[in-house]
Computed example of a mutant assay.
Amino acid sequence: MRKPLVIFIHGFGSNGFGSKAQATRDYCHAHDIRFIAPSLSHIPALALQTLEELIEQLQLAANSYQVCLMGSSLGGFYAQTMALKYRLPLVLINPSMHAGASLKRALGTAINYFDESPYEWRESYVATLQAIEPSYPLDLDNSRCWLMVQTGDELLDYREAVAALPNAKHTIEQGGDHGFQGFGNHLSAIMAFFQAATNR
C-alpha cells in the first residue's frame, strides 16, 4: 500500500517553519509520515520552479509514496497550480484564489515573518501570479481536493474559494481568522484524506 508524502506550501511572507507548517511537521513526525515544508523564494517564478523540481524529483524517486499537497493562503494558490499540473491530491487552507489581485495591495516593501527582514514586492510578481491563474470554477472533486475556510478570514473572502471549487470537499467554519484557528485539530482527518486519495 502506498503512503502519502506531504508537501506543505506556506503563504505570503511566511516560511517552512510557520505555525501550520510546524504543527503538520510535528504530527507527521509522530505518526511516521513523510513531510517536507520548503521555505520558498518570495519571487513567484522561483517559488514555482522550486516546487516543480521538488515534485518531479520526488515522483521519480518515491514509487511507494504519493505526493500530496497542503497550501495556505498564497501557498494554496501555488498548491492548486501544482495539483492541476501533476494531478495530485491537495488540501487548501484559507487559500488565495486570485493571488495576483489580492497581493496588489502588498506592492512595495514587505516583511518576511521569519526574521522580519524587508524585501520588495513588485508589479512583475503580481503579473506572474495573474498569468498563471486558472479559469474558475475548477473541476477538482471531493476525493482529491479538500477546501478548508473560516468565514472570519480578515484578508480573503472565503466565498471566492467556495465558488471556485464547487466540487471539492468543503469545510466552512464560522468565525476564525486568516491563520485558521484550531488548524491542528484537523490534522488527523487531513492525513486520513490523503491516505484514502493515495490508494484510490
Rank of each mutant, 00 (worst) to 15 (best):
M1D: 13
R2H: 02
R2I: 10
P4H: 03
L5F: 15
F8T: 06
F17S: 14
G18T: 07
T24N: 05
D26H: 09
D26F: 05
A30Y: 07
A37Q: 04
P38Y: 07
P38G: 07
L46A: 12
L48D: 11
E52R: 10
L58I: 03
N63P: 07
S64L: 02
M70P: 00
S73G: 12
S73R: 01
Y78N: 00
T81R: 03
T81A: 05
M82W: 02
A83F: 06
R87Y: 01
L88H: 03
P89H: 12
L92A: 08
L92R: 09
N94C: 12
P95Q: 08
S96I: 04
M97T: 14
H98K: 15
A99H: 11
R105D: 09
I111A: 03
N112L: 10
Y113C: 02
S117F: 03
Y119K: 02
E120W: 01
W121E: 01
S124P: 01
S124Q: 14
Y125M: 06
Y125I: 00
A131M: 14
Y136D: 05
Y136R: 05
Y136N: 07
P137W: 07
L140T: 01
S143P: 00
L147Q: 12
R159A: 14
R159P: 03
E160D: 15
E160C: 10
A161E: 09
A163G: 00
A164Q: 10
P166K: 10
N167E: 13
K169M: 13
I172G: 03
E173H: 03
G176W: 08
G176I: 12
F180P: 06
F180E: 05
G184Q: 14
H186M: 06
A192L: 15
A192R: 15
A192G: 03
F193Y: 11
F194C: 08
F194Y: 11
Q195M: 09
R200Q: 14
